[in-house]
Design a protein around this nucleic acid. Sequence first.
DNA 1: GTCTATACTCTGATAGAC
DNA 2: GTCTATCAGAGTATAGAC
Lengths: 216, 216
Amino acid sequence: MPAPRPPSAEKPGTLAKPARSRIQQRNRQRILDAALEVFSNHGFRGATLDQIAAEAGLSKPNLLYYFDSKETVHRALLTRLLDDWLAPLRKLDPSGAPDVEILSYMHRKLEMSRAYPRESRLFANEILQGAPRLEGFISTELRALVDEKASVIAAWARAGRIAPIDPHHLIFSIWALTQHYADFTAQIDMIRGPGHDPFEGAGAFLDHLYKRLLAP
Amino acid sequence: MPAPRPPSAEKPGTLAKPARSRIQQRNRQRILDAALEVFSNHGFRGATLDQIAAEAGLSKPNLLYYFDSKETVHRALLTRLLDDWLAPLRKLDPSGAPDVEILSYMHRKLEMSRAYPRESRLFANEILQGAPRLEGFISTELRALVDEKASVIAAWARAGRIAPIDPHHLIFSIWALTQHYADFTAQIDMIRGPGHDPFEGAGAFLDHLYKRLLAP
DNA sequence: GTCTATACTCTGATAGAC
DNA sequence: GTCTATCAGAGTATAGAC
């Protein structure tokens, strides 16, 4: 009896559907990837199931065999995203060196934007439109995490280990600056002309900026 | 033969329709205001003529009496916006004091975001979706203006009048930080809780940030 | 599981009376 | 100039054969 495969092991408490075959897993994945591409570029209303199905190489009814509705696809994408979205800030360590911790957080966030620009635009599209589908997440989990880390930063500032600073605005500035390169890629490309990585020079610039800002 | 009214005088080269009555002017204005409200919150595809007509207090066919199509309304909004969009950067004066000029630019931009958040979101929505209707504007006018002012800033840096800095990234950072408060208002509100001006503290924070960044 | 055909709704735009 | 009625097309979702 081979050990590796736990008997019909599905994470208990998970609302996802029960065990799926390999082909189902693969198709769901293709759909989510295609949906990410289309939703991030056109927003929820702007995206059509036709586009997503074409991008995924499936027929529209077949897509709807895997997900009940357009909404369901979109929610699945957001859910998958939010897991990773908090990670960079979570890693900010209260017992680390303040400047290193904040700089590292900024770089992790920038790296996320570079590696996952579509996810960033999906998120931006949602916020821009009033965040109707993210209200729960933002006002509970994200808010709590931000407040927690803001306290840490405020304590560092009070102790004189970094320059005095408003911690919420510091966090907002990191979000704004790092996500800008993903969300506004179209504009940056048009201004710098083609053949440039939109993130070119961003790491060095932001590193310099925050070192100056935080130096006690 | 009365002099004051030039025969069918329309600005030559203008594509706009001929002289309009007061009531027409007023209705066009109402429609544009309503459209700004709806487009900025839902994007082009997400907005419907029904919503815009309702917001403007008109019937849908009546709206289409004033504008040929949904596209036309949207283009009119963008055109009106782009005139004002370049103004803050245009005012950056090469013969002024470098730090004052850059700080003033940042504050003008922040003030624009605070006073016209819907315009900012309209613009953000466009860029986020690949800027199809702004390609001409960005790759010509905006690009030329940015390059011109970047040269000015670069010269200031070379002369040691401000700290050495990449001028394009400096400009991008000002855009990112000032527009963030308008574009991501929903998120900021949810994190800080209700009853707060989303721009609260932004002026002081950004002022401090750029003073530190630019000090030679 | 996947497809073709189709039902039904929403939405942009037009016709035509007033 | 403004409205009611309506068309035509797009888009989500379902039925049912294979």
